[in-house]
């Protein structure tokens, strides 16, 4: 990452499938990865549903884009922050989320989890550190 890199945070507050925001938001993240910026994603409110494991759109004839989240690590998008309160409010816990990992090139390519569940204070602090916040 160059010195001129900006901190981009993509804030996802919407569930997948009901509307297209999650899918098209993910497309921005993937394209943005090519620009060598400091990227993170936050999942707040219904956005946490994007990471629910076991999504199967077979019978609803929509495109299942949940596998794309597994590719984020290869695009060096490795910081996915999930708001603890949003998760709990919706009856979910970490076990309900997809297991997303990345290979840490600074640590002998060890596989590490991309998802971090954070509390309100930590998320507040992370948001204050950003240069650009994109909301979907």
């Amino acid at each position: 990452m160059g010195n001129g890199a900006k901190k981009f945070m993509y804030v996802n507050r919407r569930a997948p499938y009901g509307t297209i925001y999650a899918l098209e938001g993910l497309e921005v993240v993937l394209i943005g990865a090519a620009f060598d910026q400091d990227v993170s994603m936050a999942f707040v409110d219904d956005g946490v549903f994007q990471l629910k494991k076991g999504q199967d759109t077979g019978e609803s004839n929509m495109k299942n884009f949940s596998p794309t989240y597994h590719a984020l690590g290869d695009y060096e998008v490795t910081k996915l922050y999930v708001d603890r309160e949003s998760l709990g409010e919706r009856g979910l816990s970490q076990d309900d989320l997809m297991e997303l990992t990345y290979e840490d090139e600074d640590d002998d390519y060890k596989e590490k989890p991309s998802i971090r569940i954070v509390d309100r204070k930590e998320l507040m602090k992370l948001m204050e550190e950003q240069d650009v916040i994109l909301n979907f």
Partner: peptide, 12 residues
């Protein structure tokens, strides 16, 4: 929609 509530929870 509770956008204001979420904002107030996460705004410094």
């Amino acid at each position: 929609k509770n956008s204001l509530g979420t904002c107030l929870r996460l705004a410094k």
